[in-house]
Amino acid sequence: MTSVEPTAESQAVAAAIARHGHEPGPLIVVLHAVQDALGYIPEQAVRQIADGLNLSRAEVFGVVTFYHYFRTHKPGARTVQICRAEACQARGCQSLERHAREKLGIDYHETTADGSTSLEMVFCMGNCATGPAVRIDGRLYSHVTPERFDALLAHQENAL
């Protein structure tokens, strides 16, 4: 076995294990800490977490892939989440979904070629009386029509 220089990534994973590894049933807590730090769960992290928590890689991989929230690929600079659930459907989210995919040129769980935007679907953000609901980089918006969607993206781009 050859020793590998610690990278920023492996250091972040080690920090997550050191901080949460002692908690009862720690795996999901550790995965959250890694994704909070890196934006996703790199393949390399699976091995490191398995070693650190004394689990098999299969167990860690099984958990990472079970939960929709955990990502195994580096996301875009910003993440757009669109609610697809019934209450937002009752307010016409299907046309927003079509528009967003056409506008960004990607489908759900994909990232634009320039790496600027990832598109995710979510089922309910608890914002069900003022749909369609969208979250962009953690910020929640109500009544998001296709026109408003374009304005929000443009506004964000200007603010960057």
Binding site: G25, I28, F123
Partner: peptide, 22 residues
Amino acid sequence: VAAGAYICGEETSMLQSLEGKR
């Protein structure tokens, strides 16, 4: 913190998740 699985609203599934499992 949960991780985006609707099924974890089912009580036994939630307990599995709290234990750090699928």
